[in-house]
C-alpha cells in the first residue's frame, strides 16, 4: 500500500464510522441511555474530526479525497443498549485495523497521526465493553 492509498483507506474507514455512529446516535435515548449517548456523541465528533484531517492530508499529498458512500451496512439490526454498544465497538475495531495498516504504510507526521488514532480508538473500545487485547488492530497476531 502506498502512503496515499493508506490515507484514502483510512478516510474510507472514517466515512463508514461516521455513518454508523450517526445511525446509532439516532437510536440511543439521551435520557434513558445517557452514558451510551455521551460515548456515541464523543466518538462521532472524534471521527468527524479525523475525517476532516484525513481529507486535508490527502489533499496535501496532491489527490482528491475519496467521497463517502450513500449508505453503509450496519453490523447488526441493533436496537438494545447492548446491541448498539456492540455496533460501536465493532466500528472502533475496524478503525483500529485501518489505523494499524496506516502506521505500516506511512512515515513521519502521518504515521504519528495513525499511532495516536490507534491508541485512542483502542482505549475507546474498552469504554464500549471490549476486553484489552495483546495486539489491537493487528488481526494475524
Amino acid at each position: 500500500m502506498t502512503p496515499l492509498e493508506a490515507l484514502q483507506a483510512t478516510l474510507t474507514g472514517e466515512h463508514a464510522a461516521i455513518y454508523v455512529y450517526g445511525v446509532v446516535g439516532g437510536r440511543v435515548s439521551a435520557s434513558a441511555q445517557a452514558e451510551l449517548a455521551e460515548q456515541v456523541r464523543a466518538a462521532y465528533t472524534i471521527h468527524r474530526g479525523r475525517r476532516d484531517q484525513l481529507m486535508a492530508m490527502v489533499r496535501a499529498a496532491g489527490a482528491d479525497p475519496v467521497p463517502a458512500e450513500v449508505s453503509y451496512e450496519l453490523p447488526n439490526p441493533a436496537s438494545t443498549s447492548a446491541q448498539l454498544r456492540r455496533v460501536a465497538r465493532e466500528v472502533e475495531q475496524r478503525c483500529a485495523a485501518v489505523y494499524a495498516d496506516m502506521v505500516g504504510s506511512t512515515s513521519g507526521a502521518n504515521r504519528q497521526w495513525a499511532l495516536d488514532a490507534l491508541e485512542d480508538t483502542s482505549v475507546r473500545m474498552l469504554d464500549l465493553g471490549a476486553d484489552p487485547e495483546p495486539f489491537p488492530g493487528v488481526e494475524e497476531l
Binding site: 494499524a100 502506521v103 505500516g104 504519528q112 499511532l115 491508541e119 482505549v123 488492530g137 493487528v138
Partner: peptide, 28 residues
C-alpha cells in the same frame, strides 16, 4: 509509540504501534 515512529520497516512499525495501543489499554 516513539519506537514505532522511528522504525524503518513499516510492518514492524505496525506491530510496535499495536503493542503501544495494548499498553494504553492496560493502563486504562
Amino acid at each position: 509509540k516513539r519506537h514505532a515512529f522511528k522504525a524503518e520497516s513499516g510492518a514492524f512499525a505496525r506491530v510496535l504501534g499495536s503493542m503501544a495501543a495494548a499498553a494504553a489499554q492496560n493502563a486504562a
